[in-house]
């Protein structure tokens, strides 16, 4: 009997080992086994950047919306495009009409928050510089998405953690303070060295400096302020922003191209396109000679939403006008813009 009790108590002890109930998913990555290596961080950065591309419905994107709402363009399109024409008329065509823009920006913010929260658990960095660069890119993108929201919706809830929270709208000071804080940190930690050509379009120190200047102008202008108060840090002053811009101008290597018309690929078609030939235009391409692009939205050429659908929407309507693409004719330019 003693023996039996002995065996039974062994069984009870074995049973009480709590790690008996531990298990791990074998065929999907989860938050506890992802975000372990620099490669994981790179993939999550791709996930953050990918939201810059609005896919097949670009007409809810802040760029499209602001173009149509501005005096520069009309709505265009055809008779069945009341939805898009409503944008240009500042009208509602549905509840939640700009939901997609809201969702995409907050998805980007969630992914950036997730990356920033997970950085401490990553091992095997190639260098401290690599870590700082990735962190800087995530901070830049969080600031970028908040600025996009601020332009579309005014002030918005300031979500800085992945934990679900139902937050009220932040004040302009809080929102722009955080944007300035993120960009300042990005500027401080990101490397001066240029990225490899494969990383074209990604956020750099110089892009952060430029973005800071733009946001400073926006905030101080729209809210009639002279500085941006930064939480737990010194406020962002005009002189600091000027120093960023100066630093960018002298160090970044970015400058305007000689003829702005060379920024677009149609000018490459010199032989077929007399306008380009007559004006001696030549596309500068995307890398190297293109010193003007500091940060860009990257598109693919694999169809199904990977490509640049702004071109399709804004292209000349239903005309074969080589070398210009066939398009749907949204946003025809107001002649005033040209005349002015």
């Amino acid at each position: 009997m003693k023996k039996i009790i002995y065996i039974l108590s062994i069984a009870l002890i074995v049973s009480s080992c709590s790690d008996y109930l531990d298990s791990e998913p074998m065929t999907s990555k989860v938050n506890t086994n992802f975000y372990q290596t620099p490669a994981d961080i790179e993939e999550s950065l791709n996930g953050i950047y990918s939201l810059l591309n609005p896919g097949l419905d670009p007409f809810m994107h802040s760029f499209f919306v602001s173009e149509l709402m501005s005096d520069d363009r009309f709505a265009g399109g055809g008779g069945v495009d009341a939805k898009i024409q409503a944008i240009a008329e500042f009208e509602n065509f549905a509840n939640d009409m700009y939901l997609q823009s809201w969702e995409d920006n907050y998805s980007g913010i969630f992914r950036a928050n997730m990356l920033l929260e997970s950085l401490p658990q990553v091992e095997n960095w190639e260098s401290e510089a690599q870590k700082n660069r990735y962190k800087g890119e995530a901070l830049f993108m969080r600031a970028y998405y908040y600025f996009d929201l601020a332009r579309m919706f005014g002030t918005v809830p300031l979500v800085l953690a992945t934990e679900p929270q139902n937050l009220p709208k932040a004040s302009p000071e809080e929102l722009f303070g955080q944007i300035a804080k993120d960009l300042r940190e990005a500027i401080e930690i990101m490397p001066d060295d240029p990225y490899s050509p494969e990383d074209i379009g990604r956020a750099t120190k110089w892009a952060a400096q430029g973005m800071m200047a733009r946001i400073f102008l926006f905030y101080t202008g729209v809210y009639d302020q002279s500085t941006i108060p930064v939480p737990e840090e010194e406020e962002m002053t005009k002189s600091e922003v000027i120093a960023y811009v100066d630093n960018c101008v002298t160090k970044s290597g970015h400058e305007l191209v000689d003829d702005y018309r060379n920024l677009w690929p149609y000018s490459y078609a010199t032989e077929d396109y007399s306008y380009a030939a007559d004006n001696n235009l030549s596309w500068v391409g995307e890398e190297g000679d293109n010193t003007e692009a500091m940060f860009s939205i990257r598109f693919g050429a694999l169809g199904s939403g990977t490509h640049n659908t702004f071109n399709l929407y804004f292209g000349l309507r239903m005309q074969n006008t080589y070398p210009f693409g066939y398009g749907w004719g949204f946003g025809p330019v107001n002649p005033q813009l040209w005349d002015e």
Partner: peptide
């Protein structure tokens, strides 16, 4: 959530 770098055909 694919992003593109310099090669527009490489996800």
């Amino acid at each position: 959530a694919d992003h593109f770098g310099i090669d527009k055909k490489e996800r």
